[in-house]
């Protein structure tokens, strides 16, 4: 196959290029060592792997990972902080609602009390006024009755006099002459009895 011919052609520049490959490049042993199993390259690969990987490890450990961890921690902190803030605000809102409801209830109780008091006071006042008025009316009624009684009594007394005058006048007109006042009085008295 062309693989072997390629190797034959490849071997020449390799041999010319580096003394290290001289041994492997000489096509004496038909097959050149399969590169990954060529032990001659091992020390160089191990050394450079140790150097590069060591540097890489140190760089990641000292610089990159603290930075990445920091970024992620800051973000997580921020999220927790925001959630806490939200929870605190919710708590505050709940407290405000509770306080509002309590105040509303208190205000209702107060309003009822004030209304009741006003109602009671108004009732009491009305009652007082009514009683005073009633008492006054009672007094006036009593006075009126008393004055009626006295007027009536007076009138009744005067009725006798009027009757005597009338009687004497009538008697004088009918009989003529003077009439005895005492007789007429006695007659009126007996008639009105």
């Amino acid at each position: 196959m062309f693989v072997t011919s390629a190797y034959a052609q490849e071997a020449a520049p390799a041999a010319a290029e580096g003394d290290t490959h001289a041994g492997t490049a000489v096509p004496a042993a038909e097959h050149e060592a399969f590169p990954p199993f060529d032990a001659k390259t091992f020390p160089s690969q191990i050394l450079w792997l140790v150097i590069t990987f060591g540097l890489f490890y140190l760089f990641l450990k000292r610089v990159v990972m603290p930075r990445l961890g920091g970024i992620i921690d800051v973000r997580n902190d921020r999220i927790t902080q925001d959630l806490d803030h939200a929870a605190r605000l919710k708590g505050e809102a709940d407290a405000a609602v509770a306080a509002y409801e309590q105040e509303l209830a208190e205000a209702k109780v107060n309003a009822n009390k004030i209304g009741q008091q006003a109602n009671d006071a108004a009732k009491a006042q009305a009652e007082g006024t009514r009683k005073k008025l009633e008492a006054e009316l009672e007094k006036k009624l009593g006075e009126a009755e008393a004055s009626i009684a006295s007027i009536k009594a007076k009138a009744m007394k005067e009725v006798g006099t009027i009757a005597e005058d009338t009687t004497s006048a009538i008697v004088e007109a009918l009989v003529g002459g003077k009439t005895d006042k005492s007789e007429i009085a006695a007659a009126v008295k007996s008639a009105s009895r």
Binding site: Y7, E10, D19, T20, P43, S44
Partner: peptide, 24 residues
């Protein structure tokens, strides 16, 4: 040549204590 890609050739030849530690 499928094996050619795996070949190692020195860029800066370097020998320390008898070992070939070239920068390849």
């Amino acid at each position: 040549d499928p094996i050619h890609q795996f070949q190692i050739h020195p860029i800066i030849p370097l020998h320390i204590g008898g070992y070939d530690v070239s920068f390849t």
